Amino acid sequence: MIENEVFAIGVMSGTSLDGLDLVYVKFDKKKLSDFDILASETVSYSDEWKNKLQNAISFSDKELKKLDFDYGRLLGGIINNFINTFNIDNINFIASHGHTVLHQPEKGITLQVGDGQIIADITKQKIVCDFRTQDVKLGGQGAPLVPVGDELLFSEYDYCLNLGGFANVSFQKGNERIAYDICPVNIVLNKYAEQLGFEYDDKGKIASNGIFLMALESDLRLLSYYKEKPPKSLGLEWVKKEIFPRLESSNQKPEDLLRTFTDHIAWAVANELPKNAKILVTGGGAFNDYLISKIKQKKKTTLIIPSAKIINFKEALIFALLGLLRIDNQVNCLKSVTGARENHSSGVIFMPK
């Protein structure tokens, strides 16, 4: 093995519950941006697991402990299948984001389930996980964490925009990296697509044929979160409190809610982007042609849609990078992004027993 080469698996489960993303990646420690994704896969959740993870927000402490254990076992099995499918025999470590079920940093709470010791024991590999808790203990938001990767892997872009469960943006301002969540995206859109019998709104076709509800969208624009200054982040709790009640009480058709909320996303995102910038767009929303076209309508800027591999697996890739930085005790959480008291190296390392 070449001394500076590191081989890792990154595992990411997003809030939109569209599946578990896995990447096997090679990093060159001398030049991290020269990474190579050697294998990648998205594993869909069963209806039972989707239901569990969606409803975990209301679980008791005892139920959450069991979920943490059971989900760790699920991850361990999926990772082993991934290793076997792609005949992977050279792994320095596995970085697992887990799945966020609670995120209330203002109360000092963030919880990503997926017991690291269980995963280590099942895979017989070194595991790095629980990347957010330390940041919250240091007074930070515990999110977003991807901007470190944006800076180290994708520095040729002015802005990195991710359209996943939530839209978030990352950019360099002077000597600091600034990043924050903008608004919900697929966590809302997928809910209404599912009501129509689809997993998601493919290319935004349903939204494009819906009716725009101006009064509802005007009401959404008044949400106080949009006036807050970063650092700031969003979670499912906020969506359940602020978004779903507004949409549900309108008593409108799902296709019209899809149209209205997609237009709302475009408004919120365009508000945060400068003119004539070079912007990398990733996350499932990058495939939503209607959403992308609406953002372009609202702001004259250059949206660059990369390869499907980068769109789909950028977050899993970056969590592998965060794992590498943690193992080397390098900074992987930026106070300029999360609002923590200091830059730090976050994540817990587990070795197989």
Rank of each mutant, 00 (worst) to 15 (best):
A8L: 10
V11D: 07
V11P: 05
L17K: 09
D18Y: 00
G19E: 01
L20T: 08
L22Q: 00
V25Q: 05
D28Q: 04
K31W: 10
K31P: 11
L32Y: 09
S33C: 11
D34R: 12
D36P: 03
V43S: 02
V43C: 03
W49I: 04
L53R: 02
I57P: 01
K62W: 10
K62H: 05
L67E: 04
F69C: 14
F69K: 13
D70A: 12
G72M: 15
L75V: 01
G77F: 07
G77L: 00
G77N: 07
N81C: 04
I83W: 12
N87C: 08
D89Y: 13
I94Y: 08
S96D: 00
H97P: 06
H97Y: 03
H103V: 04
G108I: 10
T110Q: 04
G116I: 08
Q117E: 13
A120S: 13
I122V: 06
T123G: 00
T123L: 10
K124A: 10
Q125V: 00
I127T: 06
V128D: 07
D130I: 02
V136K: 06
K137N: 09
L138N: 13
L138S: 11
G139E: 02
G140C: 13
P144Q: 12
L145T: 08
V148A: 13
G149P: 04
S155M: 13
Y159P: 09
Y159S: 03
N162K: 12
G164S: 06
F166H: 13
S170L: 11
F171N: 00
F171S: 00
Q172L: 15
I182T: 08
N190Y: 04
N190V: 05
L196Q: 09
F198H: 08
F198P: 00
E199P: 10
D201Y: 11
D202H: 10
G204W: 08
G204S: 07
K205I: 02
I206L: 09
S208E: 15
N209M: 05
I211W: 04
M214P: 03
E217F: 07
S218W: 01
D219R: 00
R221V: 08
Y225N: 11
K227H: 14
K229R: 14
P230Y: 14
P231V: 11
P231R: 08
K232D: 09
G235E: 10
P245G: 01
P245Q: 03
S250Y: 15
Q252E: 13
K253H: 09
P254E: 09
L257G: 06
L257D: 02
R259F: 11
R259L: 03
D263V: 07
H264K: 00
A268V: 15
V269F: 07
A270D: 03
N271I: 03
K275M: 14
A277L: 13
V281K: 03
T282Q: 01
A286C: 02
N288C: 01
N288T: 06
D289W: 10
Y290I: 01
L291G: 06
I292F: 03
Q297Y: 12
K298N: 07
K299G: 08
K300Y: 12
T301Q: 07
L303R: 02
I305D: 05
I305C: 04
S307D: 14
I311H: 02
I311N: 15
K314F: 14
A316G: 14
L317A: 05
I318R: 15
A320P: 08
L322C: 10
L322Y: 12
G323W: 04
L325T: 08
I327Y: 02
Q330F: 11
N332D: 01
N332A: 03
C333G: 01
G339C: 07
G347M: 12
